[in-house]
């Protein structure tokens, strides 16, 4: 019975393989030839593009900044998204559906519009700077453009909707009766969170966190617009390498490093968490 259903997955798998893996293969293959500029490549297979990436401090720092801003954005997004997801999941009124619909709609608003909204809010004459200046909390308007903090805010803005939807689907799988049972046995609300809700949602946090991290690692628009040319992440660097220098092989090698690093970070995270859980079960 199960095998019969699996057969239905074969056509989409083939289409995906052809469209995604096929094109990626051509791109990645290009990364193993020396870049001669203007789209031209050498004829011999070589690792020179990768050697340059891993020996040049500029590329390594860009790589590190990409991981850092993505990780911070993923953690903060989870932290912000979970309370919203929890409240919406536990709502009994029809308002929950409206809120969910609102989140879905806002999630699909193009990122360029969202980022320009952020730029306006955070501009020198924007609401935030004016409020802080009026309250005397800052002496001079602060700009988020061209800062790593700005890129983190942009990435959070990009992923917060997804995170709420992801975490909502996790919270609804936790029966409210478990929370009631804990409270009946004397647990405070905080204790219920610590001992019931968060442990039961933990696998969802991990998977959701990794998905958001993956989105942030590949995000271009937020990083390009809010980085203001001063903060470079790997996707921005790939675009600059293709558009400005027309160095396809170099760009392909950067993209491949990004792809492999995302896969490895995901694998190691899942393995580490599985081992941690096993160790905790043994202790228990």
């Amino acid at each position: 019975m199960e095998n019969r259903w699996i057969a239905y997955l074969i056509p989409p798998f083939i289409v995906t393989l052809l469209l995604v893996a096929g094109s990626q293969f051509v791109f990645i293959q290009n990364s193993f030839y020396q870049d001669l500029g203007l789209g031209r490549t050498g004829t011999d297979l070589t690792l020179v593009n990768y050697l340059k990436f891993f020996t040049d401090s500029f590329y390594l720092k860009t790589f590190w900044i990409t991981i850092k801003v993505s990780a911070i954005a993923a953690l903060l997004t989870l932290f912000l998204g979970f309370p919203i997801a929890y409240v919406v999941a536990r709502m009994k009124s029809k308002l929950a559906m409206f809120l969910l619909a609102g989140i879905v709609v806002s999630t699909f608003v193009t990122i360029v519009i969202k980022v320009f909204g952020l730029i306006i809010i955070f501009s020198a004459d924007g609401v935030i700077n004016k409020t802080l200046l009026n309250l005397g909390l800052i002496e001079r308007a602060y700009s988020i453009i061209g800062t790593q903090e700005g890129v983190v805010v942009g990435l959070m803005h990009f992923t917060i909707g997804f995170s709420v939807l992801l975490l909502y689907s996790v919270v609804v799988t936790v029966p409210p009766s478990l929370e009631y049972a804990a409270q009946i046995h004397g647990a405070s609300r905080l204790r219920v969170y610590q001992r019931v809700i968060i442990p039961l949602c933990a696998p969802g946090f991990v998977v959701g966190g990794l998905m958001i991290f993956n989105m942030c690692m590949g995000a271009f628009t937020s990083a390009a617009l809010l980085g203001g040319g001063r903060v470079l992440t790997l996707p921005v660097l790939v675009q600059r390498t293709v558009m400005m220098e027309v160095k396809y092989s170099t760009a392909a090698s950067i993209a491949f490093v990004l792809l492999v690093s995302v896969i490895l970070i995901n694998l190691f995270s899942l393995i580490a968490i599985r081992r941690l859980r096993s160790a905790r079960l043994v202790v228990a």
Binding site: S57, F58, K61, T62, I65, G146, T147, Q148, G229, R230, V231, L232
Partner: peptide
């Protein structure tokens, strides 16, 4: 430019 002027 990249090495001098980006915050990297």
């Amino acid at each position: 430019w990249n090495k001098t002027l980006t915050t990297n």
